[in-house]
Design a protein around this nucleic acid. Structure first.
Length: 333
DNA sequence: AACGCGGGGAA
DNA sequence: TTCCCAGCGTT
């Protein structure tokens, strides 16, 4: 890390950097929500939900006083639903002591203070402080890791993020870390891409060891491949032309707190074609729809017309849309 | 340190 | 198909 590097970077950023709407605000709440939605999620995927979320919950208080159900309704389809639980819970904790201003006074404007709130880790804490101009930090995310590991041709297979974050935290204030962070994120998205990086267009290529050695794409070293097992589930579907019977899933675990048809895991796969396939991070889910002849226990009847008011996992939403279409088709016969 | 946790778009 | 995304919490 040297000063000429940041000069090259900021020069490139002033000409090619993206203008993202949320870089205009300095409201810590908005930035917190944005950063949380974008955890492990592409901007293109979170965009619409982000707009709806901030419209529906514009302040800490509005989020803290809303039912979790309402939060999950907005969040549905985005995945990693524990983020929504934690955001909601943290908003309640924050609201109870009087909001962000009271929090700063009470706990201080430090990453460590923010990290005591559920759902806020090393990255998000620094992003909130830096992007709301309460401090100057360089939050190290996947983008920054990719660039730095290439810059140094760093073979470290894991634990890179925390090491790089420590280095970034040790940089002097003169580094203008907020600007550098924006610049690194844009460079990583536009030039220093995971596959086929455009090193010829990169302002740092002469400083980049991996690029000089023609090995940019080999960094960061790939994580050890995790095999993705197949799991089989039965989905118990009961519905009429008017209603469908759903249960709320337990708060923890897969699809926590969302509404779903009752499901049980099957030890041995049935010798039939699955009705539903859904890939998750750590396993492939194959689903077999079992049509019940009566409402399954512990379920609630949800009118089809009100289904939009409930938070559902994406594949279940698709399944039920298809089911509703079946009812419509049979009625019009 | 490893794992659970979602979903979709790009290559 | 595989990869990976503005990560975090638990074990």
């Amino acid at each position: 890390m040297n000063p000429s590097l940041s000069k090259l970077l900021l020069g490139w950023y002033s000409e090619h950097g993206r203008t993202l709407p949320w870089r205009e605000t300095d409201d810590p709440y908005s930035i917190w929500v944005i950063e949380t939605l974008l955890q492990q999620t592409r901007i293109s995927q979170a965009g619409d939900i982000l707009k709806r979320f901030l419209l529906r919950f514009p302040t800490v208080e509005s989020l803290a006083t809303a039912p979790l159900e309402a939060v999950l309704q907005i969040w549905q389809g985005l995945g990693y639903y524990q983020r929504a639980h934690n955001l909601h819970r943290a908003a309640q904790l924050l609201h109870a002591i009087g909001g962000f201003d009271a929090f700063w006074k009470l706990k201080g404007q430090t990453p460590e203070a923010l990290m005591t709130l559920p759902g806020i880790g090393a990255y998000t804490a620094r992003a909130i402080l830096s992007f709301s101009r309460k401090g100057d930090f360089l939050p190290v995310d996947g983008n920054v890791v990719r660039i730095l590991s290439r810059l140094w041709a760093d073979p470290t297979p894991k634990n890179r993020r925390s090491i790089y974050q420590e280095k970034a935290d040790a940089l002097p204030l003169s580094w203008r870390k907020r600007e550098v962070a924006y610049a690194l994120m844009d460079l990583a998205q536009l030039i220093c891409t995971p596959k086929r990086p455009k090193c010829l267009l990169c302002p740092l290529s002469t400083e980049c060891r991996a690029s000089r050695e023609g090995q940019a794409e080999s960094f960061p070293p790939p994580a050890p491949r995790r095999n993705r097992p197949i799991r089989h589930y039965a989905f118990y579907l009961y519905s009429t032309a008017e209603k469908v019977w759903l249960e709320k899933r337990p708060a923890n675990g897969l699809w926590g707190g969302l509404w779903c048809v009752p499901m049980t895991s099957l030890e041995s796969p049935p010798q039939t074609v699955p009705d539903l396939q859904h890939d998750l991070t750590h396993f492939r889910l194959l689903g077999y729809v079992v049509r019940s002849t009566e409402p399954p226990p512990y379920t609630s009847a949800i009118p089809w017309a009100e289904l939009a008011l409930y938070g559902l996992p994406a594949p279940i939403r698709r399944l039920l849309m298809h089911e509703a279409e079946r009812h419509r088709a049979s009625l019009s016969l």
